[in-house]
Nucleic acid binder design. Structure first.
Lengths: 329, 329
DNA sequence: TTGAAAGCGCTAACAG
DNA sequence: CTGTTAGCGCTTTCAA
């Protein structure tokens, strides 16, 4: 049914080696045989079997991406950047939704390793030893994205979460806010949780503002949790004038809650988010937020992964995307 | 470095055939040799080479997904459903962003076919002959998602766009609206363009409302184009009281434009969207929209693809998710 | 229950 | 410039 290199060789009256040379753009054949081979390939609709090739070349032109979640715009924008350069360099990308689940993650690592991918991207989660040790043994290139490690020899590309969070809160302070709440992700999260809280604290401290634990509520970076956290904050009756949410999605959730309570935005409550995904444009008022160049991060990550000669890490700059959700107080 | 089946065999004092039997859960070995082999596998950290396996088994446990875009929540929710059942059935998924570009699409089809994927999912685009013919020749399972075909023997899962659109507009009419605009996708788009316009027309006609071309503006399903289209509509000064947008994202864009013009929503303009992604909860007022069970579509698609014995098509039901963006007139 | 050996489809020496 | 041949790492008859 499906033709193989022998079929092509036979029909073209040459050896398989010659066919191989032609399809791999090597040297060692006349223009004449080249044309002949190419014609037969076309006639037969021959497509080289990448599996067989991979067996010989020990390379698959495929990489795997371990993502903790497939539900956030953050993930997609990242994926978009990754796919973009992957495709341009002729790599395929296998997506793996780990769901932040240890078993699933290990399982996927095993699969990727069996499939002999040429590289693995590990996205925005803390690299536990459980994962790091295995990945290291795999002996294939690994790069981290939106996370980091100083224990394992994997390069990473990310934004400094602590600094970015510091900037967000400082921005609020600069606008005159003093009673500033925070909707954080999981405080145990060593990547997007703890550091962002630390940045929040630091900014307050540097401005001589007292830190009150009650001003922090916790969510899971997603919309619904943002609403819930905002509700908690409001019920605590803290007299907040602004809230920093650790993701645009939670910020949107917070705004939805406030709207439902007919609280005028941004007049009665300023909100600043984190990520600057398209979500930030969808809310009303449009969300002022910390911008991280997500798609670019994906692109850099692929670069890091592919030219694995250099072990450098990349820390991208963040900025504040000013829109309409923060007002002076 | 990385151990192979021979290493395991030698060290366990058995043949490769036996090792193979053990790791494939076949019969033909004593419990004793099984344990021995398993122990050695563990010691060596042996991982069967899926490439070599694939070469002999002619199967890769991998499928490819051809997506026209990686930027919409629609794509993500679909992908989530796909990945979910794929992983549960031990398949890996390669994502291919075709960008609605013919060359890229053909290119990806070629790659997927060379990589001998076990199936291909073709998402939400009209299946041009250019694609259909090649896919058919490939002789591997193909299923269509959020699109359909009556020309090629591929099963599909989708929602009836025309009917869904009809429902949306009828809902508006039921709420008393007569001057209803539409923000459509590309009218040449035979999947999400033309049929949704047709549904809009039909609903108006059935209600005895005159159809005015000027009441339709066109976008590309994305946010920015939704704003632009809304602007056009407003500038035409048509006295509209409601607008049906062919995607939640365009609806969000439309709302953003209206907000920027301080037009009170939904009082001065009702908006209904299409998709019911998370986007619909982020807007203010929260978007009333046509719900299609996107993630479920992804799940069904994988089912269709894997049990290719049945050639059935699946048309999922839509509904209206009522939120706050439509008011009576 | 087990092993020897023949492929799966291709690439890469090595000869010629 | 071209062909022969030996693998790549695994599965699967076919014998034993």
């Amino acid at each position: 049914m499906i033709s193989k290199i022998d079929d092509v060789a036979r029909r073209a009256g040459v050896s398989t080696a010659t066919v191989s040379r032609v399809i791999n753009n090597k040297t060692g054949f006349t223009e004449d045989t080249r044309r002949k081979v190419l014609r037969v390939i076309d006639e037969l609709g021959y497509k080289p079997n990448a599996i067989a090739r991979g067996l010989v070349s020990q390379t698959t032109n495929t990489i795997g991406v371990l993502m903790p979640c497939l539900s956030s715009r953050f993930s997609f924008e990242l994926l978009k950047g990754i796919e973009k350069v992957a495709h341009s360099k002729n790599y395929s990308v296998i997506i793996c939704n780990t769901d932040r689940n240890g078993e699933r993650t290990l399982n996927y690592i095993q699969t990727l390793s069996e499939k002999r991918v040429d590289g693995i991207l590990f996205i925005s989660e803390w690299l536990k030893d459980e994962y790091g040790e295995i990945l290291e043994k795999l002996n294939i290139p690994v790069a981290l994205v939106a996370t980091y490690t100083d224990k394992y020899p994997f390069p990473y590309v990310r934004v400094d979460d602590r600094q970015a969070s510091y900037s967000a809160v400082s921005y609020l302070i600069g606008r005159g806010h003093r009673k500033i709440g925070m909707i954080s992700g999981n405080p145990e999260d060593r990547i997007a949780g703890k550091p962002r809280i630390a940045g929040y604290r630091q900014a307050l401290e540097d401005a001589g503002i007292e830190l009150l634990e009650a001003r922090i509520a916790y969510g899971d970076f997603h919309f619904t949790s943002g609403s819930a956290a905002m509700e908690e904050l409001m019920q605590r009756d803290l007299g907040l004038t602004a809230v920093f949410a650790a993701s645009d999605e939670m910020a949107a959730g917070a705004m939805a809650y406030l709207h439902s309570k007919r609280i005028p935005l941004p007049d009665s409550m300023s909100i600043i988010g984190y990520d600057d995904t398209l979500d930030a444009e969808m809310t009303f008022p449009a969300l002022t937020t910390v911008r991280q160049p997500i798609e670019k991060m994906g692109e850099w990550a692929m670069d890091l992964l592919l030219k694995s000669d250099r072990r450098e890490n990349i820390v991208l700059r963040h900025s504040i995307s000013v829109r309409d959700s923060v007002t002076d107080v």
